[in-house]
């Protein structure tokens, strides 16, 4: 599987890509980016790894059974933030409730970080899940007679 140069490149890039994903995740308030982009980048690191070293090795690091859990948890983190604000007397997703006395909207900041985390987790897990679903399928011989 894969060319040597390809493998070396992937090995070198793997960690920086994940680092970049984390940067995008937590820097989304200040520059472009956010949970969704970070999730996609994180998933693409693993997809790249799977492309170079085979699906099996990737699945040993991240077993397929984790992914539905990750997807569900991501949504639950997001929705849970909403429920939290609901239970503490605010409207659904009203982050100001998280830190009501703050002068600089700390509640908003915490809320945004929380939901972005949820988005990131859900997206990363889903993208990898979709890739696993496709890559795990055996291609059939095809007729291209036309």
């Amino acid at each position: 599987m894969g060319h040597l140069i390809l493998r070396v490149t992937i090995k070198t890039l793997f960690a920086p890509i994940i680092l970049f994903a984390l940067y995008v995740q937590f820097h989304g308030d200040y520059g472009p980016g956010g949970g969704f982009q970070a999730g996609v980048i994180l998933a693409s690191a693993f997809i790249l790894h799977a492309l170079g070293f085979g699906l099996d090795r990737c699945q040993r690091v991240i077993p397929p059974s984790w992914l539905p859990v990750g997807m569900a948890l991501g949504v639950l983190i997001y929705a849970g933030t909403g429920v939290y604000t609901l239970l503490f007397g605010g409207n659904f997703l009203d982050y100001d409730v998280i830190q009501p006395d703050s002068h600089h909207h700390a509640g908003q900041h915490i809320g945004i970080i929380a939901v972005e985390l949820g988005v990131g987790l859900a997206v990363a897990a889903t993208m990898l899940q979709i890739y696993y679903a496709f890559a795990g399928r055996e291609p059939e011989p095809m007729d291209d007679s036309w």
Binding site: P68, M71, A72, L73, V75, L86, N91, F92
Partner: peptide, 24 residues
Amino acid sequence: MLLDDLPVLPVILPLIAAPVCLLL
């Protein structure tokens, strides 16, 4: 208290229940 949130509850209840359902 939650009665004020009545308009949103019937929507988010199944929305949150869906991922929970997957984890059961």
